[in-house]
Design a protein around this nucleic acid. Structure first.
Length: 283
DNA sequence: CTTGTCCCCTGCCCGC
DNA sequence: TGCGGGCAGGGGACAA
């Protein structure tokens, strides 16, 4: 489930459990996920205080009092569950461990943070905080789509001359970091651009016009996640799932929601992944 | 360099 | 009810 808005929602949900609290115990229930966990992860986490929990693209980064930073990536199916956190009304119990609970952080405030990931495409790693930007997974990332470096001229420059479809270009994390399959489909629908169009064939103006649309789509999704966060009261404290209203994603065969448009949503496969779009209003 | 294909892994849904 | 196939929100490792 996690693209940038979901990871941001997870981060906000984890803040009260983690930020400024100490990891009092670390339970590691398997050797690793996509890669083996770093040497001595249990020892290096236990006793550390989480100074700050931040996000870069789809990665969660916990800066620790030890001078190290814990990197968490949710992959395709990763979820973070919070339990034992006191809310205004009551304290949730800790649920029994579930299948695919791989790492459990026991926090000094009584909360537990559980990393559950059935497909195990997720990852955890530890690095020196001051060298975090040089980490393999972080160093080639493009600008944050909601940040100041990401603007019309930048995107127009990066798309110019590229033969790849715009769909693939927007999924390329080196161009802009944090978009995934869902939000690229949604962005292209709002922009009226076919996912098949060559990135380099867009005019500079149309390329630049993608920037505010990308920001808008992501901001709306974060707001939607934020509202589900205020509502979440499930016993397991699952921070992963909330309802989005997508205009094209997963709506193959449905009528296009663009006003006046008579087209219907179709699905094609581009580089092995589904693209949903309206062939009528997306050119 | 750019671009496309394959693959990692489990679970779920559909049709037969 | 069981089984096979297709599909899933990410992204690294290759080959051309």
């Amino acid at each position: 489930m996690p693209e940038l808005p979901e990871v941001e929602t997870v981060r906000r949900g984890l803040l009260p459990a983690m930020e400024d609290h100490v990891i009092s115990a670390t339970e590691i229930r398997r050797e690793g996920l996509r890669w083996p966990f770093p040497e001595g992860m249990c020892r290096r986490l236990t006793g550390a205080r989480v100074h700050r929990l931040r996000r870069r693209s789809k990665y969660l980064l916990a800066d620790l009092s030890t001078g190290e930073t814990l990197l968490i990536h949710l992959g395709m199916s990763g979820r973070m569950m919070v339990s034992g956190l006191a809310t205004a009304r009551f304290v949730h119990d800790h649920p029994a461990p579930q299948k695919h609970d791989h790492v459990v952080l026991h926090m000094s405030n009584g909360a537990r943070v559980t990393f559950n990931d059935p497909r195990r495409f997720g990852a955890m790693d530890l690095m020196a905080t001051e060298r975090a930007g040089e980490h393999m997974l972080l160093r080639d990332l493009g600008p944050e789509p909601l940040g100041n470096q990401f603007d019309g001229p930048y995107l127009a420059d990066r798309l110019a001359g590229r033969a790849t479809p715009i769909k693939s270009a927007l999924l390329d994390q080196r161009i802009v970091a944090g978009l995934g399959n869902i939000y690229v489909c949604e962005v292209l629908h709002r922009a009226g651009i076919s996912p098949r169009r060559k990135a380099g064939n867009l005019s500079r103006d149309r390329a630049a016009a993608l920037v505010p649309i990308i920001r808008e789509v992501l901001q709306e999704a974060i707001l939607a996640g934020g509202s589900s966060l205020r509502d979440y009261r499930q016993a397991d404290g699952d921070l992963g799932y909330f309802q989005h209203t997508f205009r094209v994603y997963g709506r193959e065969g449905a009528p296009c929601v663009t006003p006046e448009c008579t087209g219907q949503v179709q699905r094609i496969v581009q580089s092995g992944r589904s693209s949903f779009f309206c062939g009528h209003c997306q050119r």
